[in-house]
Simulated assay, not measured.
Amino acid sequence: MHIQLIRHATLKVGYKGRTFLVDPMFSREGELPAVVNTPNQRPNPGVELPLPVSDVLAGIDAILVTHTHADHLDPAATRLLPKHLPLFCQPPDREKLLELGFEQVFPVEGEREWEGIRLTRTGGRHGTGEIGEKMGPVSGFVLKANQEPTLYIAGDTIWCEEVERAISVHQPEVVVPFAGAARFLTGDPITMTKEDIARLAECAGESQLFVAHMEVWNHCLLSRRELRDYMSERGLSARVRVPEDGETVEYQR
């Protein structure tokens, strides 16, 4: 298995001979407005893609969308993605994705098999209290296949009971948390903080972490350097990878 961080939450995952494109967001730097009522009011995304869209699309066999917020599926991606490819999603997003023109939309209620790969949907919390409710439903996904590491893509969630349960049930060898400590001007963070990542790493035993969702969207305030330093202070650097945009990491079972 290999994982390439394209940018933010956009990943290319090579798994069991197939390539998934996760949470595609293709907008050019500054093409989209800042999220309202958030710190750091600059246009999004904050950086360009590290490679051409044609290279991102090369060789993909399926699309996985954790949820349809604009930083996980933007207008540029909707326009440029091949509409005939299988697209896996959470059930509440099915109708929207069909309306956007995708032809093979497969909601994952519990589990779904595809090409020898079992996809399982997990829960999460996109923040706390009223803000968490307003952010709507979000999901994580676990990929399992013979002779491959079990992969858990946590999605846009804070550390919570649902994440802890997913780790306990699925025992993933690789976890992709979405960090950045994104927040609004009021309330708690809506994605994982450095403290959340440390809790996840400690709960996940010997699992390797590949941390995404950083330094791109205007309200993601946690930097890679700060997260790396925090992991180093806690002796977790060997297990917590904080990749740069475009970086690829190979994982063996």
Rank of each mutant, 00 (worst) to 15 (best):
E247K: 02
H170R: 11
Y15T: 06
V175G: 02
G101V: 11
V22K: 06
R125N: 00
L119N: 01
G205M: 12
R228V: 13
R125V: 08
L119I: 14
V105I: 03
P189Y: 02
P91F: 12
P243C: 11
R241G: 01
T19Q: 14
A9P: 03
H84M: 02
E202T: 15
G155H: 14
E130C: 03
K12N: 07
C160S: 14
L236C: 11
R234T: 14
H170S: 11
L49E: 09
A145Y: 03
R79I: 00
G101N: 06
R225Q: 14
G180H: 04
Q41A: 14
G46A: 11
M214F: 03
G101K: 03
P243W: 08
A212H: 05
C220D: 13
C89W: 01
R224E: 02
T191M: 02
F210T: 01
M192G: 02
V169K: 11
D55K: 15
K194L: 13
R241K: 15
R199P: 00
E250N: 10
G59M: 04
G116D: 10
F178G: 00
L49I: 05
D71Q: 09
V35I: 15
W114D: 05
N44D: 15
P43A: 09
Q41E: 14
L51I: 15
E250D: 05
D23E: 06
H67G: 01
C160H: 03
T66D: 08
W159S: 02
G235T: 10
T128A: 15
I153E: 01
T122L: 13
L200D: 02
P107I: 11
T191Q: 04
T193V: 12
A181M: 07
A179I: 12
R183I: 10
G30R: 10
L97S: 05
S223G: 15
D93N: 14
E247F: 01
L85K: 14
G116M: 12
E162H: 08
Y152E: 06
A76F: 08
R234L: 14
Q208D: 08
K12V: 00
S232F: 09
T122C: 12
G132A: 08
I190M: 08
H8M: 05
G116I: 12
K12M: 03
V175T: 07
I190G: 01
K96H: 11
T128P: 02
V108I: 15
G136E: 05
F178H: 14
P43F: 08
A34V: 01
E215W: 06
H84Q: 05
G155N: 13
T120C: 12
L87H: 04
P33Q: 11
I197E: 03
C160V: 06
L143N: 01
H69T: 09
A198L: 14
F26A: 13
V47Y: 13
G140R: 04
L80Y: 02
H72G: 00
F20A: 12
P39V: 12
H126Q: 06
G46S: 11
L21E: 04
M231K: 07
V163P: 00
R121K: 14
R225Y: 10
Q171F: 07
C220Q: 15
P107Q: 13
T186R: 14
S207C: 09
M1P: 09
R224N: 05
E113N: 10
H8A: 05
F141V: 13
F210H: 10
